[in-house]
Nucleic acid binder design. Structure first.
Lengths: 232, 232
DNA sequence: TTGTGTGAACAACTTCACAGCT
DNA sequence: AGCTGTGAAGTTGTTCACACAA
C-alpha cells in the first residue's frame, strides 16, 4: 500500500528548470570559491548564461530562498539546489565500454566531486579487461549484473559501440537500473519508468551545420532555394 | 545592400524540429541500408522514438514530401532532410584539445560519413603535438588561426580543460568561426551571431540523479521532505 | 481505404511588469 | 531604494482529430 497525500502541493519542478539547476549550481560553486557571500538574480543569471526573470522563476519552484532587496545567500542556495537534485547523497555509477570515450569519462574530474562515484568500469574486450584506469580495474561485461547488484549501481553510462548498446541497455534494466546515460548513436528502447538521457556528437554537429548554413545564405530565405522544377 | 523578399513564406523551422531531424535521418539511413523503399509516419516515428503526429508535423515544415495513403519515399526524404540540415555540402571541423575525449571524437566513425571532415587536431601540450591520430598529425594551438583560415574550418569542437575553453573560444571567434561545440564544463561567453552547443556529462548525470531520487521516494511528494524546522 | 498534412485545442515554457517584502 | 517572487501575457511546442489526396 502506497501512501499518497491527496491535497499535496504540486511540487513537480518543470523539466526545463531541472535542466538548468546544474548550471546555477556550477556558477554558485565558482562564487563560493571566490568568497562571494550573496548574489543577486541579475549576477547569477549572467554567470549561468540565462536571463534574470527565468532564473528567479526557476528558483521560485524550489521555494522562497532569496531575500528581497538583497539577493540569495550563496552557500544556502548551493545546499538547497544540491538537495533538490539529489546530490547530498552519492550515486554509484558504472561505465560500460572503455574505449577512448569511456576513458575520458572515467578520468573526468568533476565526476567524483559532485556525488557521483565510479563503481565499475566494464568492457567486452579481453585485451582491455584488467587495465587500471582512474584507479579502477576494468572488469568483463559478463560481470555486469553482479557489479550492479553488489555495488548498488543506480546509474549506468553506456559508452559502447552502437551495435552493443541496446543489449547492454536491456541487461542493466533487467538488473534493476532505471537511469541510463547513453553515448551510443542509437535510440534505445526502454520500458516506462526508465530514464534515458542521450549525448550524441553527430546530432549536435548536424544542428550546428543547419544554423551555419542559414548564416552563409545571408538571410533566412533565398529565392533560389525552391526552384519549381525539383519535385520528386 | 541585402536582398529581402517581403512577402516571403515563414520558412523558419522550429528549433525543436531541427533538433529531431538528425534522428529521423539516422532512422531513414538504417532503413535505406535494409532496402526499405517506403515508410509510414507511424513506422518512422517508432524507429526514431517519437510519436507519429509529431513526426508528420516536423516533416510538414520542410515541405510536402509524403504521399497520402502510402507514406514517404525513404531515399527522397533522406535527400530532403540532408539538404535542409546542410549535409549535402561538407564541413571542415577542427578539434581543439586532444586528451581522451578529443581522441574519442577524432576516432568517432559517424563523423566523416555525414559531411563532417576533421580538418585539424590541435593541442597546447608539446608532448601530444606531432602524434598521429585518425590519420592526422596533431598541431600546436599556436597554429589555431592559421589552420582555421587555410583549411576553411567553420565548426570548432572545444575538448580542452575548462580553464582553457574561453580563451580558445575567443580566438576561434576572432578568426571568424561562428559555430562551436563545447565539451568543457563552462558557460562560454560569445557575441551575438555565434552558435554554441554544449555537451556536459556532469549536467546530464545531475538530471538523472534528480529523477532517480524522485523514484526512490515512492511518489512525487513525501511529507518529510519539508520539515518546518529547516530554514536557513 | 489508407495515411498524410494541418487547423485548432492544449500544454509547456518564457518574458513582462509590478506588488510587496526587507 | 532595491530586488525577489509571481500573476498575467506572450511564445513555442505538442497532441488531437479529421479533411482530403492517392
Amino acid at each position: 500500500m502506497i501512501r499518497r497525500i491527496p491535497q499535496a502541493r504540486d511540487r513537480g519542478i518543470p523539466d526545463a528548470t531541472v535542466a538548468r539547476l546544474p548550471l546555477y549550481l556550477r556558477a554558485l560553486n565558482g562564487m563560493a570559491e571566490r568568497g562571494t557571500a550573496t548574489v543577486s538574480s541579475e549576477d547569477l543569471a549572467l554567470a549561468a548564461g540565462v536571463n534574470s526573470a527565468k532564473l528567479r522563476k526557476d528558483l521560485s519552484h524550489l521555494g522562497s530562498y532569496g531575500t528581497r532587496g538583497v539577493g540569495y545567500d550563496v552557500q544556502y542556495l548551493i545546499y538547497q539546489i544540491s538537495r533538490e537534485l539529489g546530490l547530498t547523497q552519492d550515486w554509484a555509477v558504472a561505465i560500460v565500454g572503455v574505449g577512448n570515450l569511456g576513458r575520458a569519462l572515467a578520468n573526468y574530474g568533476g565526476f567524483a566531486s559532485r556525488g557521483f562515484r565510479i563503481a565499475g568500469l566494464l568492457d567486452a574486450d579481453p585485451h582491455v579487461v584488467g587495465d587500471r584506469i582512474a584507479g579502477l580495474v576494468v572488469e568483463h561485461t559478463d560481470e555486469l549484473e553482479s557489479v550492479i547488484r553488489k555495488r548498488g549501481v543506480s546509474i549506468v553510462v553506456i559508452a559502447t559501440p552502437a551495435t552493443a548498446a541496446q543489449q547492454v541497455c536491456d541487461r542493466v534494466i533487467a538488473a534493476g537500473v532505471t537511469s541510463i546515460l547513453n553515448f551510443a548513436p542509437v535510440v534505445l528502447a526502454v520500458p516506462d519508468g526508465v530514464d534515458v538521457r542521450k549525448v550524441d556528437l553527430s546530432i549536435e554537429l548536424q544542428i550546428l551545420a543547419f544554423h551555419e548554413q542559414r548564416k552563409a545564405n545571408g538571410g533566412p530565405i533565398m529565392a533560389e532555394e525552391w526552384p519549381d522544377g525539383v519535385v520528386m
